[in-house]
Amino acid sequence: MNKRTKKRIFESFRYSTLTIWLLIVAFPLFWIVSTSFKPDAEWFAWPPVYWSETPTLANYANVWTGKEEYADTQYIQSMQKPWVALGNSTLIAFISTTLAVFFGSLIAYGVSRYQMLSEARMFQLLMLRMVPPIVIVAPLSLHYSTLKLLDTHLGLILVYFLTTLPYAVWMTKSFIDEVPVEVEQAAEILGASKLRTIWEVVLPLVRSGLVATFLFILILTWSEYLLALILSKTEVVTLPIELSKYEGSTEGRVYGRQAALAVGITIPLIIIGLFISKHLARGFSFGMVRK
């Protein structure tokens, strides 16, 4: 077998594996989108309906406008407030993510340049994230109850900020590490103050990385379920909690509605992703500064 044939075989193996994997991963996404357009009868149909022959926007209209005439199931639509949940999620996710990336990068800078945390501390920081949330959520809800943080925006912002901070530190540190110290020192010896150096030299070089980190943490926060469920269920409802309400024992399983909501939840992330795709490609490649 010559080299070229070998390479061909390898390539076709590679691409068929990737294709199969892509199909497996993408199928649930397809199923959600497909279900969101199905009329009620097709949600549970057997054999399954892959793509409805009579697609309808009824699910979307019911979920997002709350109009009575679309409430043609036993599902009590008046209980649901997806726009409120969307507002809550947006507020909470954006504020906590901004805080995490801001303070995370400050810490990361200190660690990268001044060894502010030892390597052991850095790992302990990550270990914090390995504790299953269920372990911390019970004691936390007790504290939250005393502090009157249960069911508040502030409460969720705080817990999301703190739990995503380790990721923010680790990710932004990898980007800051990529900026050679000499480049900063060159700026300093040319007369730039520390702040000016960070603003003019460091920040532009890590911008893509910060954007990538922001999106990564935003996705985590946007879709967080357990903490939101325990700490904030009735007053301040986020989208994942809202989503779960379409599967309650009283309402029954209204898959079409749920799918329509799920699609709506995902779209903002996709839009943001498209807007910053340039940064993502550079940021996630972890190698923006060539020496």
Binding site: A192, L205, V289, R290
Partner: peptide, 29 residues
């Protein structure tokens, strides 16, 4: 501070600002 010592330094790794044009690199100081 380094900037108050009236010295210039050329680094082994050049340490140019990768995101700035050469003109802006030279103009920086």
């Amino acid at each position: 501070e380094p900037r108050d010592r009236d010295i210039g330094m050329v680094f082994q790794s050049h340490a140019l600002f990768p995101h700035k044009y050469i003109y802006d690199n030279i103009e920086f100081g």
